[in-house]
Nucleic acid binder design. Structure first.
Lengths: 192, 192
DNA sequence: CGTCTATTTGAATGTACTCAAAAGCGGTGG
DNA sequence: CCACCGCTTTTGAGTACATTCAAATAGACG
């Protein structure tokens, strides 16, 4: 139950057994089935979430009913709504489940306590956010620099495990194109 | 010389005079003139940079010679190349000066020492990156959800100070459109 | 088996792009 | 101070890629 998250955290910091036990005592295990919501627009996000299994997505629902996907999260990924989490203001985004999922939650208040008691966690999340920041930069550059076809190929190359789990129109909503366009792109590619 | 950065850091953490003095002892003041480079593609980025005055930009030069701007930085902004900084690998990006600039640098090794001696700085940069992450998310969403005209209006509304300093074709390179297109968009808008 | 959703395909449309040229602006040197 | 040069911005005409709208096919789930 905690081995995956232990491994994940050990990538950036080293914890004593006592520290890790204390950390896990703050975690809540939760399961949600497909199509259930971890967070809805208008709610304040009180948790950071680490995925043990399944698949979640963080997305925005635009005025005209379009879904724009900010992030998919499968096993070993963190997901949350940072803007709402930081400011305690209502979220403009949704987080829901694409494939029955098990995950661990830590609340903002517990996390603040954790930061005070085990400052190494500040370091862990500092590094984690620095890496996430780089990933978003890469995605922005992809949007500026690459065609839809290139972005698609990069995605399935970089995240083959996600491509497995996620239906095509969701991938389109992540890549910033319409499902019809992704279908045509794939048709093109299959002829090569 | 250090008052702006003191103010900047005090937004997230509180330092004693001794801690702040120690911090500033690690900073190097530097000035560069327009068109000079702080970092070139292929170099490893060894510094985080805080801007006192002037204007810098972080950009990517694509194979066909196009510039894609990831970030502008004016007074009170941090700028750096996180990917190279984190991994010690050569940068794929450039950082150069758009308007004669004065800024403060802290090296990676000094920063690591600082983290150990004054762990509050882990917290500072954790929060800073969390905020930066949110800003990039917003930009990605803008790319998915908004027209070029909407992105332009949002930009000049959100960063009026940057719009002042930056020539139009640079703004286009940030918004992900061609200079000609931005010119047409502005013409459209002026007729409203 | 039937229903609902996802994917594919077609035809017409639109937004931003390319290429090309003109006009505007700023700085430098005669 | 004016003339010139280089760079930026504007404008025009034709183009390309992804979109919209619509319908058909395929696939998943009860």
């Amino acid at each position: 139950m905690f081995q995956l998250i232990h491994q994940n955290i050990s990538r950036h910091i080293t914890l004593t057994a006592a520290e890790f036990d204390y950390f896990t005592s703050l975690l809540k295990l939760k399961r949600l089935r497909k199509k259930q919501f971890l967070l809805q627009e208008g709610e304040v996000c009180h948790y950071e979430c680490f995925v043990n299994s399944g698949c979640l997505r963080h997305y925005y629902l635009s005025a005209n009913g379009q879904e724009h996907i900010m992030q998919f999260a499968v096993a070993d990924w963190w997901i949350g709504e940072q803007s709402s989490f930081l400011t305690d203001e209502p979220s403009k985004y949704f987080i829901d489940v694409l494939e029955d999922a098990e995950f661990l939650l830590i609340s903002k208040t517990d996390l603040e306590t954790l930061y005070t008691r085990v400052p190494k966690f500040e370091r862990f999340f500092r590094i984690a956010f620095q890496n996430s920041y780089v990933a978003l930069q890469r995605r922005i550059l992809a949007g500026l620099n690459q065609t839809a076809e290139e972005r698609y190929l990069d995605f399935i190359n970089r995240y083959p495990d996600i491509e497995q789990k996620v239906p095509q129109h969701q991938l389109a909503a992540y890549l910033g194109i319409k499902p019809e366009s992704l279908s045509r792109i794939r048709k093109q590619l299959s002829g090569k």
